[in-house]
């Protein structure tokens, strides 16, 4: 799967590419307006990550061009502007998602994952990993035909970990993903710990052991 990262901040762009490379994504980079225009004209991408403040032009213009040319790529805006108006304008023009900087890379990864699933695997709603079967439509989880009953938070947490499989997801990113924007204002240690503990024990009961690795209560990793 091909992804174009349009981001002028080279280090951020490099980190995004490195983080996503674990997912068999093929990433290309554009650092300014002209490069982005050129690459979009020349190649097809499954997904475009688009920064709005670009040297040489407004990212929204690129978005308009993509839509005019009927290029069928999923588009996620990653912007420092974060302004509601930009968000609305971007989504109106045809962006699929909007992520305000700063964001955890794991959150970006799960958004791409969700977008790709919506666009390409709409017929395949079954996710399999380590013998675990997740039906994304009915939101049910099975292991060896044993139905594992999870709460909404636990289910979201499981998907978040699997969406970032083989990579370490930070505790803060999980708290923000589950509790929203204000999560960083509250002590999230017990909250995340409790959810991970419950999820682990429910998975272990069904025979899915040692799938979640804990990195000293700072990060968690789904091993596939």
């Amino acid at each position: 799967m091909k992804i174009l990262v349009v981001e002028d901040e080279r280090e951020l762009s490099r980190n995004i590419v490195n983080y996503l490379s674990a997912d068999d994504y093929l990433c290309e980079q554009a650092y300014n307006f002209a490069e982005a225009e050129e690459k979009i004209a020349l190649y097809d991408y499954d997904c475009i990550l688009l920064d709005l403040n670009l040297p040489g032009g407004d990212g929204l213009k690129i978005l308009e061009e993509i839509k005019q040319r009927n290029i069928d790529s999923g588009i996620i805006i990653i912007s420092a502007r974060g302004a509601l108006d930009d968000k609305i304008a971007g989504l109106k023009i045809g962006a699929d998602d909007y992520l305000a900087k700063p964001f955890p890379l794991s959150e970006l990864s799960i958004r791409i994952y969700a977008l790709m699933r919506r666009r390409q695997f709409s017929n395949n709603n079954l996710l399999k990993t380590n013998g675990l079967e997740i039906d994304l439509l009915s939101k049910t989880v099975r292991m060896n035909d044993i139905h594992i009953i999870l709460t909404k938070s636990e289910y979201d947490l499981l998907l978040y970990l699997i969406g970032n499989k083989n990579r370490v997801v930070s505790k803060n990113a999980i708290a923000e993903h589950l509790s929203g924007d204000m999560a960083d204002m509250l002590d999230n240690h017990n909250f995340v710990y409790a959810h991970i503990k419950n999820l682990k024990s429910k998975l272990a009961e069904a025979g899915c052991d040692n799938c979640i690795k804990t990195i000293y209560a700072t990060g968690y990793q789904w091993l596939d």
Binding site: E9, E11, L12, N15, I16, N18, Y19, N53, A80, R81, G82, A100, K101, P102, F103, P104, L105, S106, R167, V168, S170, A173, I215, T218, G219
Partner: peptide
């Protein structure tokens, strides 16, 4: 504030990479 968002994003992404 807008300008600060980008270095903050770089900072956070570096931490995410470090954690890997």
């Amino acid at each position: 504030s807008h300008e600060l968002q980008t270095p903050l994003a770089v900072f956070q992404s570096q931490l995410d990479m470090l954690l890997q």
